[in-house]
Simulated assay, not measured.
Amino acid sequence: MKKVSVHHVAADAGVSTATVSRALNDHPTVTAETRARVLASAKRLGYTPSFAARSLRSRRTGVLGLILPSLRNPFFPELIDHTTRAAERVGFGISLAVTENAEQHVLSMAGQGSVDGIILVGTDTDPEAPKRELPVPVPLVSIDRAPRGIATDVFQVDNAEGARSITEHLLALGHHRIGHISGPIGTEVGAARRGGYERALRSAGIPVDPTLIVPGAFSERSGFAATRILMARENPPTAIFAANDMTAIGCLSALRQQRAAGPVAVAGFDDIGLAGYVWPALTTYRQPIAELAVRSVERVLHGITVGTAIPRALARAPTLIPGILVVRESTLDPHHPLIPLPQGAS
């Protein structure tokens, strides 16, 4: 079957091919009567406009780039879902890239013109790299962490406030020896959460004990290993604040295996989907994932609409969005007996 082209539609509607193009793109110079006639001809003939051709003419792709460092942490797939939904509601698709070299991928995406804007998620780049603007006008926004080598607007949960809230919750339960499994050394998010933990201790008149702080890697494995280190201390903690939920899940596993002499409260950060279904259900600080996604998409779309790459201010402070403390069974009263393990658990 012969492919229907714009020339066939033009002949059927009795207009020029330029008028067909303008009518299909809702150009204001085309009258309502002419537009209706062109659309009727296109429908009758089964004509489908070339998306690639329309993209070339409008210099728009209808696609937003979404770049993540990994999919292992359930936080990232949840964010992908919310970002995709937010983009679809305004007529954009998502081009997903998972890479550890985010800065180079941003420059590649922007240089190829394959996307109209880019959203970076959870990316830490070279801390010594000077911030610079993208060489082409593509709006760029970051979620969760600020890339250190690229100028960008950042939307993130208030990490310091969340960590402070969790630590104060543990203090209110009567814990004075609160261990902390931090994020990777050198990460902005890890430093902010550790800072909130330390400030809460100092505000309560409790000195920060460096032997109760062990670096982790935002993973179950690192949480498991760090917990074994903490519980082997001569005076181990009675509560542990893990820098994220995956770390906290590893922590719970280590505590079950070690069968600690007394109850050890555990709290995480993020409130991933698994947090409410592990045993015991995990106390955590819920990230406003949906709002982070929506705000980021809106900011990128603003940049696309005004036709400039944003941001231009290299020293722009992150937009901090508050989360919610979610209290579950993992933060027991220190005088409460240990919850017995489920039958068959080890």
Rank of each mutant, 00 (worst) to 15 (best):
residue 96 L to Q: 08
residue 281 A to G: 15
residue 312 R to I: 00
residue 8 H to Y: 10
residue 2 K to I: 06
residue 128 E to M: 14
residue 259 R to T: 02
residue 169 H to S: 08
residue 18 A to P: 03
residue 96 L to H: 12
residue 200 A to P: 04
residue 69 P to H: 04
residue 61 T to A: 06
residue 320 L to Q: 11
residue 90 V to C: 11
residue 225 A to K: 09
residue 185 I to L: 13
residue 219 S to G: 12
residue 188 E to R: 02
residue 344 G to Q: 07
residue 56 L to F: 14
residue 182 S to E: 09
residue 166 I to A: 10
residue 31 T to C: 05
residue 29 T to C: 02
residue 344 G to M: 07
residue 281 A to T: 15
residue 56 L to Q: 09
residue 291 E to D: 15
residue 330 S to E: 11
residue 141 V to S: 13
residue 298 E to Q: 14
residue 76 F to C: 07
residue 332 L to E: 06
residue 178 I to Y: 11
residue 158 D to A: 15
residue 51 F to M: 14
residue 276 G to Q: 15
residue 237 P to I: 07
residue 14 G to Y: 03
residue 165 S to F: 01
residue 304 I to L: 06
residue 205 G to V: 12
residue 203 S to I: 03
residue 213 I to P: 00
residue 259 R to K: 07
residue 237 P to V: 07
residue 305 T to M: 04
residue 12 D to V: 06
residue 53 A to S: 15
residue 198 E to I: 01
residue 57 R to V: 15
residue 59 R to G: 11
residue 280 P to W: 06
residue 99 T to Q: 05
residue 322 P to F: 12
residue 289 I to C: 04
residue 233 R to D: 04
residue 35 R to W: 03
residue 338 L to A: 15
residue 73 N to G: 06
residue 85 R to Y: 00
residue 236 P to Y: 12
residue 261 A to I: 01
residue 342 P to A: 08
residue 165 S to Q: 13
residue 117 G to N: 08
residue 250 G to W: 05
residue 211 T to Q: 09
residue 54 R to P: 10
residue 90 V to A: 13
residue 37 R to L: 09
residue 302 H to E: 08
residue 103 E to C: 05
residue 210 P to N: 12
residue 149 G to I: 07
residue 19 T to P: 12
residue 47 Y to I: 14
residue 117 G to R: 11
residue 116 D to G: 02
residue 86 A to I: 13
residue 9 V to Q: 01
residue 277 Y to T: 05
residue 107 L to F: 15
residue 16 S to N: 10
residue 224 F to V: 01
residue 227 T to F: 06
residue 36 A to I: 02
residue 294 V to Y: 02
residue 61 T to M: 02
residue 55 S to N: 15
residue 275 A to G: 08
residue 332 L to F: 04
residue 229 I to G: 00
residue 81 D to R: 07
residue 206 I to H: 14
residue 55 S to L: 04
residue 320 L to H: 11
residue 37 R to S: 14
residue 288 P to A: 04
residue 246 M to G: 06
residue 254 A to W: 04
residue 251 C to E: 03
residue 280 P to N: 08
residue 46 G to S: 15
residue 94 I to M: 08
residue 30 V to G: 11
residue 16 S to Q: 02
residue 23 A to W: 08
residue 203 S to N: 15
residue 109 M to L: 14
residue 258 Q to Y: 00
residue 78 E to R: 07
residue 305 T to K: 09
residue 205 G to H: 08
residue 247 T to G: 05
residue 339 I to R: 12
residue 346 S to T: 15
residue 90 V to S: 15
residue 13 A to D: 03
residue 131 K to N: 02
residue 26 D to M: 00
residue 47 Y to G: 00
residue 335 H to W: 05
residue 18 A to R: 15
residue 299 R to D: 04
residue 317 A to F: 03
residue 135 P to S: 14
residue 107 L to V: 10
residue 86 A to F: 03
residue 55 S to Q: 14
residue 203 S to H: 13
residue 198 E to W: 02
residue 108 S to T: 13
residue 104 Q to T: 14
residue 213 I to M: 03
residue 153 D to W: 08
residue 40 A to E: 01
residue 119 I to M: 11
residue 52 A to Q: 13
residue 240 I to F: 11
residue 269 F to R: 04
residue 279 W to C: 12
residue 51 F to T: 14
residue 316 R to K: 14
residue 89 R to H: 04
residue 12 D to N: 07
residue 214 V to P: 00
residue 323 G to A: 07
residue 159 N to I: 05
residue 50 S to L: 06
residue 63 V to K: 04
residue 29 T to H: 10
residue 151 A to G: 09
residue 135 P to F: 01
residue 338 L to F: 00
residue 336 H to C: 09
